[in-house]
């Protein structure tokens, strides 16, 4: 019997490597190799064709003196904060609404809320360009119905980014809601029952039971939302083309423009490396923080 198990061990080696081979090959060829060559390229000046010219750290120095790039970083942070501050509490709020015991048709509503998250961003962006249009847009029409002034959504530098945030919240909140909902359903009922006997108010139950016990979920939601928000590109590309006045020029949009419109491949790679570092750093910081404030039930 031990012999068979022993043989199984070596069989596992063989089959294990074989099974992970395709995915690891894809990983090394299509992710690690481009990452390394991208980092290498970031030290060159290269217009996309012809010879590469060694530039040392010039691209990096240029980046931190490039007001447009810094603006793009600021815009990306603005967008990300908007999604984190507005989108995540909304997702939690929806999850709490849908988690009420008396609610009928929970699955139906969950479906509706989730629907936008499966749709094609390119198509949805076109729809929102129309929804947010100043004179014939539905959003401004409803604002008018409740007595609010028209907003020049995608054309006013102050409102363009809020417009993108609004659309992204519509598009993405259902996803986080589903995760929160699952998290809520994982909290044992007994906690609440005990609290109710103690006469805790709804707020106290939320503050001292729901929030702490939901913290692993919240952590996951915050980290994934932040990473995806930092990559925002499509909305800016389709809805506003980075404008007006660079108000929606995000990091990735600026990278794209440098590389594929202005022939600055090396400079564009330096910006990509910067973005990559931010994403990795953010993930690591969150991991550290997680240990401190996440409670596992």
């Amino acid at each position: 019997m031990f012999g068979k198990l022993g043989r199984y061990k070596y069989k596992q080696w063989f089959w294990g490597y074989l099974f992970v081979l395709p995915v690891m090959a894809g990983f090394f060829l299509f992710m690690i190799y481009p990452m390394i060559s991208g980092i290498a390229l970031s030290f060159y000046k290269w217009p996309g064709i012809g010879p590469k010219e060694w530039a040392g750290v010039a691209n990096y120095l240029k980046m931190f003196n490039d007001a447009h790039f810094l603006r793009a970083v600021g815009n990306t942070v603005y967008y990300t904060l908007g999604i984190l501050v507005l989108g995540i509490p909304l997702a939690l709020f929806w999850a709490i609404l849908l988690n009420q015991k008396f609610l009928k048709g929970r699955n139906f509503f969950r479906l509706i809320y989730f629907l936008p998250t499966v749709t094609m961003m390119a198509a949805v962006s076109m729809v929102w360009k129309w929804l947010l249009s100043p004179n014939y847009g539905l959003v401004n029409y409803f604002l008018g119905l409740v007595g609010l002034p028209k907003v020049n959504w995608l054309l006013d530098p102050k409102w363009a980014m809020p417009g993108l945030i609004l659309m992204s919240i519509w598009k993405g909140t259902g996803f986080n809601m589903v995760i929160f909902l699952a998290g809520l359903q994982g909290i044992p009922k007994t906690y609440y029952e005990a609290a109710e006997i103690d006469g805790a108010t709804a707020w106290h139950r939320f503050r001292y039971i729901t929030l702490p016990l939901l913290s692993p979920t919240t952590f996951f939601v915050v980290i994934t939302t932040m990473i995806t928000s930092f990559q925002i590109f499509q909305q800016a590309y389709i809805l506003t083309e980075g404008g007006p006045r660079e108000a929606t020029t995000t990091i990735v949009f600026y990278i794209y423009k440098n590389a594929f419109e202005w022939f600055k491949m090396g400079y564009s790679c330096a910006q990509s490396v910067f973005l990559l570092l931010i994403l990795i750093l953010a993930t690591l910081i969150q991991w550290r923080i997680q240990r401190r404030w996440v409670h596992y039930a």
Partner: peptide, 17 residues
């Protein structure tokens, strides 16, 4: 950890590859 590396950061090198 490759989940931390979105395609958006690899646009140029992917194109070159």
């Amino acid at each position: 950890s490759s989940l931390m590396v979105p395609f958006e950061t690899l646009m140029v090198p992917t194109f070159v590859l």
